[in-house]
Write a protein that binds this DNA or RNA. Structure first.
Lengths: 150, 150
DNA sequence: TGAATTTGTGGGTAAATGTGGATAATTGTG
DNA sequence: CACAATTATCCACATTTACCCACAAATTCA
């Protein structure tokens, strides 16, 4: 299970050094093979290859002439790029994706169970403040949430 | 599985250089034989020949006196053009199709599972911004999507 | 506290790739 | 049938990318 927040910086070539504590897990789980793609919230998603493939299988089965299904396919599959951990445990983030998420130097890597999210540090902080402010104010919780007990 | 975003440029002869990482797959899968056709969203679709043939079989079986079926047949089958990877891994896009999708120099090649989409770079970026803004706002999600967990 | 090992960072080099142009083949036309 | 125009194939150069190595920093253990 991937969890935790890590403040990192990209090097001059746009590479991201995966924190050591995740490396062994990743090597075992997917042999260092990962997939990066984008998220609607302007961050990147980083999946171990097998986990990504499972999602991909679901996505390609969606009906081709449904508008929102196509949008999802184009965003997620359309941006998905396989990349491998190099000898020093780094992954090279493709320039178009870096640009998409406005990643410069300071980024935040967030464990999210089966995947990581990668945010521009400033964007992340702003968002987090907003989320806290919003709280549960905007009602309309899905049933799964209504009954959630933490 | 074809995935990922590639920023490319057509050369002076309207040829598109397929990124190397896909070439081996394509050579194995369809011996470099591809089919280009058009899409309702003003982009081009690029299929490996065998995958296209499967789609084509489904299309010709559609009922002839259904309006939208005929439209689909005319668009898809009507514009489908076979073209082969040349010695340098490039395909020549037929001028009428290039014109259809307003392809000039900067284009984007998007993996979409069994096919690629080819977009004019500017059009792609505009669309993507719209998609992100729209989100799932416009309801009408297929049931498969309602419960999708990424 | 010091030394040794592990981790983070940067850069250099060699190979692979993209790009353009030149020549050869083919097709269409007068 | 010959010529012209277009299309296809090939080759060479410039650029980029990936891989590898070396150093600096931090951490751990003695």
């Amino acid at each position: 299970m991937l969890r935790g927040l890590n403040e990192l910086s990209l090097d001059s070539k746009g590479r991201l050094a995966v924190p050591t504590r995740y490396r062994e897990t990743l090597e075992r789980h997917c042999d260092g093979r990962m997939v990066v793609t984008v998220d609607r919230d302007r961050c990147l998603l980083l999946y171990p290859l097998p986990d990504w493939e499972e999602i991909e299988r679901k996505l390609v089965k969606l009906p081709s002439y449904n508008e929102s299904a196509r949008r999802l396919q184009r965003l997620l599959i359309g941006h998905a790029t396989e990349c491998e951990l190099d000898g020093s445990g780094r992954i090279l983030l493709p320039p178009p994706l870096r640009e998409f998420a406005s990643l410069e130097k300071s980024v935040v890597l967030i464990g999210q169970g089966n995947k990581f999210e990668i945010w521009d540090a400033t964007t992340w902080n702003t968002q987090r403040t907003d989320w806290l402010a919003a709280g549960a104010a905007d009602g309309a919780l899905p049933p799964e949430l209504e009954s959630l007990s933490l």
